[in-house]
Nucleic acid binder design. Structure first.
Lengths: 152, 152
DNA sequence: GGTGAAATCGTAGACTG
DNA sequence: CAGTCTACGATTTCACC
């Protein structure tokens, strides 16, 4: 699926996308242009979806994170579809997953403070279509946050 | 805490960090150098922690994602610390959070296939220190994946 | 895939308003 | 704190081996 050299390139770019093709090429044993060609190819194939800045959540004011388990009234395609569209449209909902297990969906939500969370809980999540049960877990400590996939 | 213009800059950089200061400046109503100065400042202040490539998990072979709730035998600092260090060190553990609620920790784990997950479950997670209970939820659908904080 | 060179682009600095 | 202008450097891109 992916070659060893490609994986090394991806590994580098995951953690610092500002490295130049020349720098990465040196690390992986390729010339700058060969490395650059591979990167372009990885972009074209969609392996690399884009490049983004990693922001510090706390410095943005997002000091609280929650995992919210949501149960819906029923499982029909209509119900699930309506919920998913509404959830995805809310900026407060950072992530949303349909999962097996006790609940139907798991959401990741960030809040600025307790008032903000109260607002999100009551106005946003409770207001999503067909929600009948909500159970929140506050993140007390982020032991490991997302840094990238094990690609090497 | 953060000014409107800074937020706009961060918004742009979150989604495409390859935009130049000139391009972003145009969007936010600043000259290239003024915009560049602000970006540097945001980096220096630690609001921007770095820049990375967003990779497509499926094209890397990570077609399965799990949320794993882990309960430990006890809550002493020693127990928690040992678990956290071990969990953070495993590349298969993409994320790890200490949470309120029924379990102690929530882990996010990616696997290449069912065999890979079996391996991770039995060899990795069960082998983390002081684990007495594991409950996994398979992600059946990613409704919304992480795109960035609502910063505007 | 490598080389090398050309053209482009982006950053950084000094200075002014 | 923003704008302009400039210069330097780095990076991409291309044709060819």
């Amino acid at each position: 699926m992916l070659e060893k050299t490609d994986r090394k390139i991806l590994h580098e770019l995951q953690f610092d996308s500002r490295r130049s093709a020349a720098t990465i090429g040196e690390k992986v044993g390729l010339s700058a242009s060969a490395c650059h060609r591979r990167i372009r190819l990885l972009e074209d194939r969609g392996v690399i979806e884009g490049y983004g800045a990693r922001l510090n959540a706390e410095k943005l004011g997002y000091v609280m994170t929650f995992f919210v388990e949501v149960t819906l009234e029923g499982q029909s395609e209509t119900v699930l579809g309506a919920f998913e569209r509404a959830a995805a449209a809310r900026p407060e909902v950072l992530e949303c997953y349909l999962t097996t297990g006790t609940a139907d969906y798991v959401l990741k939500v960030s809040a600025q403070d307790t008032d903000d969370y109260e607002r999100i809980h009551r106005r946003v999540i409770s207001g999503l279509p067909h929600v009948i049960r909500i159970q929140s877990s506050l993140v007390m400590k982020t032991v490991k946050s997302w840094r990238g996939y094990p690609v090497e």
